[in-house]
Nucleic acid binder design. Structure first.
Length: 423
RNA sequence: GUGGGUGUAGCUCAGCUGGUAGAGCGCUGCGUUGUGGUCGCAGAUGUCGCGGGUUCAAGUCCCGUCACUCACCCCA
């Protein structure tokens, strides 16, 4: 047992799996980048009050899962448990909302929640997210959802599902909340569940325990109590989603754990992931910006779980990010050859060719073995004869064939053949 | 946070009713003179998660602890 271990519940990614992680992260961000979203790099910790006010004091995320600490200036700071509050804070602080609206941003990075770790539930979790702020056009809701769906599809994922609903707004939700509260009051619920119902009755709707679930058969649903505006908005969103050919499932009991969500709300789940099946989710938020001290602009965004999406890819047997890490591997057989190799290596890499060489003064056999392990399709062998003749041997590892090339022409030749193959 | 399971070489795991550790894969080397992947041979690596207890004796039983894992909860 090593003296030091990574903190509990914190995943690490190292080769070879780390390349799959990078591929997933890039794939999740790609559609948004191509839709004109700009990148925003945010602090990993913020004023604790930002999350308390923005995400909601009553949420589990804020009330019992935040890593909160006091800094040397006696300020209360918290490791960010989610991304939206920070993005909104930055928009307000830097007045990003004073130009053309909507402001469209994307971000990626670690978030922190002190939950009990599980497969796919980590204390340091990675997310890729986007926010479109300053507009309540339902087409924007559809765009955000479409970009998430596209990201998953690009990776080759198939066994996932999109749940969609509307949570209403400040006009219609309070009335519905009352109806639901009255309904829940007459059920047989245990104390913790009653407490939860008092805090946020919506939350009880997606309780998975059979003894609770079975009593919810004819519970009143938000979608049946939407005001006219919310109803229209939701209908339009669905219309635009059809235009974009996105498949979804109506999920009238879908609830989100963050208080700021209003109207359009969605979640992507993967069927092979077990209890932690949510691979992404998001929705619209009407009051968030105002509650953080900005103008009353509406926004919509998503957060996609990088860790869980990687898990989902693995569960579906997709080998994302696979493939050799270098195109060429150089094998020197003598001291003079090592000098030639170091020079050649620099030239290869400068020419954009991914290259590595045999280090450690291994024998030819051992070096060839290392070359094989590297996965490089081509190996450049340089021995005393080659040094004298100012040429090199280039071996095609798949076919086993080998040919001599002059020192001057190797780089060009290799670049040509690599480019041919990548087409 | 609540309840269950697991923890043995780098990896996957075997070790029956307690008697001081094994396999496969991987790794290193060899199969003569400058060539990998297959094959054959040889070799290295474990305070059996950690701490305590019971016992003549514990990987094997008991307690604690840490980590992972499953469900709830929560959510990405």
């Amino acid at each position: 047992m090593p003296e030091f271990q990574a903190p509990k519940g914190v995943p690490e990614y190292f080769p070879p799996r780390s390349s799959a992680f990078l591929t997933v992260r890039e794939a999740l961000a790609f559609p948004a980048q191509h839709a004109g979203y700009g990148y925003i790099e945010l602090p990993v910790f913020e004023d604790t009050a930002l999350f308390v006010r923005g995400v909601g004091e009553s949420t589990d995320v804020v009330s019992k899962e935040m890593y909160t600490f006091t800094d040397r200036g006696d300020r209360s700071l918290s490791l960010r448990p989610e991304g939206t509050a920070g993005v909104i804070r930055s928009i307000v602080e830097n007045r990003l909302d004073k130009g053309t609206l909507p402001v469209k941003l994307w971000y990626a990075g670690p978030f922190f929640r002190a939950e009990r770790p599980q497969h796919g539930r980590y204390r340091q979790l990675q997310q890729v997210g986007i926010e479109a702020v300053g507009g309540d056009d339902p087409a924007l809701d559809a765009e955000v959802i479409t970009l998430a769906d596209e990201a998953y599809r690009r990776l080759g994922l198939r066994q996932y599902r999109l749940d969609l609903t509307s949570l209403g707004c400040a006009q219609c939700r309070p009335a519905y909340r009352e109806v639901l509260t009255n309904f829940l009051a007459q059920l047989d619920l245990d104390e913790p569940t009653r407490a939860r119902a008092a805090l946020n009755p919506l939350r009880v709707l997606d309780d998975k325990r059979p003894e609770v679930h079975d009593q919810l058969g004819d519970a009143p649903l938000m979608v049946d109590h939407l005001c006219a505006e919310c109803r229209d908005h939701y209908d339009s969103v669905r219309g635009f989603l059809r235009d974009a050919r996105v498949q979804w499932q109506e999920a009238p009991r879908l609830v989100r754990g963050l208080d700021y969500y209003t109207r359009t709300t969605f979640e992507f789940t993967h069927e092979l992931l077990g209890a932690q099946s949510g691979i992404g989710g998001g929705g619209r938020y009407d009051g968030l910006m105002e509650s953080v001290g900005g103008d009353a602009l509406s926004g919509i965004g998503f957060g996609l779980g990088t860790d869980r999406t990687l898990l989902a890819c693995e569960a579906e047997g997709l080998d994302v990010g696979a493939g050799p890490r270098v195109d060429v591997f150089v094998v020197p057989i003598s001291d003079a050859a090592r000098h030639v190799s170091v020079g050649l290596l620099a030239e290869l890499r400068e020419a954009g060719i991914r290259a590595d060489m045999a280090y450690g003064g291994r024998g030819l056999k051992g070096s060839m073995k290392a070359a094989d392990k590297s996965g490089a399709p081509r190996v450049v062998i340089i021995g005393e004869d080659e040094v004298a003749a100012q040429n090199v041997q280039v071996k095609d590892m798949q076919q086993g064939s080998q040919q001599a090339m002059t020192r001057e022409e190797v780089v060009g030749e290799l670049r040509r053949s690599i480019m041919e193959e990548s087409q």
